[in-house]
Design a protein around this nucleic acid. Structure first.
Length: 570
RNA sequence: GCGCCCGUAGCUCAACUGGAUAGAGCAUCGGCCUUCUAAGCCGGCGGUUGAAGGUUCGAGUCCUUCCGGGCGUGCCA
């Protein structure tokens, strides 16, 4: 149930009758407990819009809304405060009943949504630079799916380009069974070194590129095997990370190769193509470069080669026509903002995407170290994703042993995995900044405060209650009483899940869900600290057990949607 | 030069088409384990939201100028 939408709907009717306009009621959760559970802030803006005889003060409007609005089934009382705020105090009986409805329900108009995320370069091993796209994209994909949308994951991996010539030449040298392939980063570095130091090797590398592009069979086969190996590395990392991507979601750059001449031809047919300095470009008036000169989107180099702009245009067309998408989300770093603005504009101009397809770049910044500079290892290298996870899990392993020495070795390892990986993901997902963000081992792995372990801990404490008390269907089906303030607050937070998910999905911000989870865990822990459960007499005991059950269910659901595990005990 | 993003407590971050007294966590100080997990809870300290103007009932949010930082700005992605 989307409580906010329900209240908005009721108040919108009243606003319409009172003001004669479609003024927005602006219903939102209240900032402070004394202002009720929700508040409607639309009276001030509505008053401003009225003129002449209809002119009234915001307070008058608010009073009239309160008299007019039909919310007897939901609301205990309404009050007008300040310049014209309407504070909404929900009815405990309504809250208790609403808790019995499903935690998430499908939206009214489901869409087909492409989520383009992760997209590593297969020439190298996955490093921290891929983390944000991968986990933010995966969380959004899960959230969208939970809301009933049809999600089409697209892993637009980089499997094409000149660096593959070098890699293939080196692969031929080392042999396909080479031990060196176990570490693609080292492999790449070794190949690069050969390329830089040995002119005949460099020549072979360049020849490989030509052979690859010409579709020479042996080279293609070698390339294909390299790609498969690299993809299997990626898949292992996805599995570790709890990311839902599979090989079936891979839609590599090279998959569009055959389509690129057709893209150029289509641009030509539309009269969009201009040859400038030997390159084929699209100039649109809205893009200006240096000195106000027109800024091109280059789609074909002077040597005839294609660029990522060409591939991206082909991908837009594919998503519009073959995938029939309503939305296409691009999870890439913020530096590509101009590129995507251009690609989207050209795609519209060329008719590759109609009004039915919403193209949305969801940018994010780089990961910085605590010194404010790009996040690197001590010796300045890139941090591999696997190394990062190893470190996180190792720290968690030590911490788990410290906090709970009674766990078996197997369980300790399992908890360490859930906590370590969860901490890394949550640290990122809980931030909304589209600009750079600071990655700090100590802060994230301290597991205090607003972190995944805090949420996981709240969950496992609830499981502990269930292990000690008898929990059966009758208890869960029983009436929920919300007499204590802590119980009421918990109920209101619990009921916000749907609206939070819809907001996250709409705006592409999983951190809304994180904030909600943290609020939920905090609300539960306060309830837990001050309201006895198992030692309480009936019927309160059953009511509190049911409330705990619903909390656990939704904590787990929320964490699932972030791709973070829960454990029964920690 | 031009364009985009950013600047909030000592640190890391919130603040939902402009809403009430700008909120959390970390750090720090002080309380709470003889009852369901103390990875917890309660409380204190901490702010001229980079600066100055403007718009209005109301500005961290919108506009202008300036300061500081990041990124982008034709044949990498």
């Amino acid at each position: 149930m989307n409580l906010r939408a329900l209240l908005t709907d009721r108040f919108a009717r009243a606003f319409a009758r009172v003001t004669g306009s479609d003024a927005a009621p602006l219903v939102q959760p209240s900032g402070k407990p004394e202002f009720g559970d929700y508040q409607a802030n639309g009276a001030m803006a509505a008053a401003k819009a009225l003129t002449g005889d209809a002119k009234r003060s915001p307070r008058q409007i608010a009073e009239q809304i309160v008299a007019e609005v039909q919310v007897e089934d939901l609301v205990d009382r309404l009050e007008v405060a300040g310049p014209g705020f309407i504070n909404i105090h929900l009815k405990p009986a309504f809250l208790a009943g609403a808790l019995k409805t499903p935690p998430v329900e499908p939206v009214r108009s489901p869409q087909r949504v492409v989520v383009d995320y992760s997209s590593p370069n297969l020439a190298k091993e996955m490093h921290v630079g891929h983390l944000r796209s991968t986990i933010i994209g995966d969380a959004l994909a899960r959230i969208l799916a939970a809301l009933g949308h049809t999600v089409i994951r697209q892993n637009h991996v980089g499997d094409w380009g000149t660096q593959f010539g070098m890699l293939l030449a080196y692969l031929e040298e080392t042999g396909e069974g080479s031990e060196e392939l176990k570490d693609l980063e080292d492999f790449y570095r070794a190949a690069k070194q050969r390329f830089d130091e040995d002119a005949t090797f460099a020549e072979r590398a360049r020849a490989k590129v030509v052979a690859l592009q010409a579709g020479e069979a042996d080279t293609r086969a070698l390339w294909h095997r390299f790609i498969q190996i690299s993809l299997s590395h990626c898949q292992a990392t996805y599995d570790r990370l709890g990311v839902t991507l599979t090989l079936a979601d891979v839609m590599a750059e090279s998959a569009y190769n055959d389509d690129l001449p057709a893209v150029i031809a289509a641009l030509e047919a539309r009269g969009l193509l201009t040859v400038s300095e030997g390159a084929r470009c699209v100039f649109l008036d809205e893009f200006k470069g240096k000195d106000g000169k027109p800024l091109p989107l280059i789609v074909q180099k002077s040597d005839g080669g294609y660029l990522y702009a060409t591939t991206d245009l082909a991908a837009v067309r594919y998503r519009a026509r073959q995938l029939e998408a309503d939305r296409s989300l691009y999870l890439t770093d913020a530096r590509q903002a101009l590129h995507f603005r251009q690609v989207f504009a050209v795609a519209r101009e060329a008719g590759f995407a109609g009004n039915g397809l919403s193209l949305e770049h969801q940018p994010f910044g780089n990961m910085l170290g605590s010194d404010g500079k790009p996040f690197k290892t001590r010796d300045g290298g890139v941090v591999k994703l696997n190394d990062l996870l190893d470190e996180a899990v190792a720290r968690a392993y030590n911490l788990v042993g410290e906090k709970n020495p009674e766990l078996s070795e197997a369980e300790r390892r399992d908890v360490a995995d859930a906590v370590g990986v969860g901490a890394v993901k949550y640290a990122d997902l809980s931030k909304n900044r589209t600009s750079d963000y600071v990655f700090d081992w100590d802060q994230m792995l301290s597991f205090d405060g607003n972190t995944a372990p805090y949420l996981q801990y709240a969950y496992s404490r609830i499981q502990s209650i269930f292990r000690r008390g008898n929990l059966d269907d009758a208890v869960l089906a029983g009436e929920i009483r919300l007499d204590r303030e802590e119980e009421r607050t918990l109920a209101v937070v619990l009921l916000r899940l749907q609206e939070v998910l819809e907001q996250s999905a709409r705006e592409g911000y999983p951190h809304f869900l994180c904030s909600w989870l943290f609020e939920l865990a905090a609300a539960f822990t306060r309830f837990y600290e001050s309201c006895p459960i198992l030692n309480e007499a009936e019927p309160v005991r059953s009511s509190r057990l049911a409330l705990s059950w619903i909390t656990a269910e939704r904590l787990k659901l929320g964490l699932d949607l972030l791709g973070i595990r829960t454990v029964p005990r920690m």
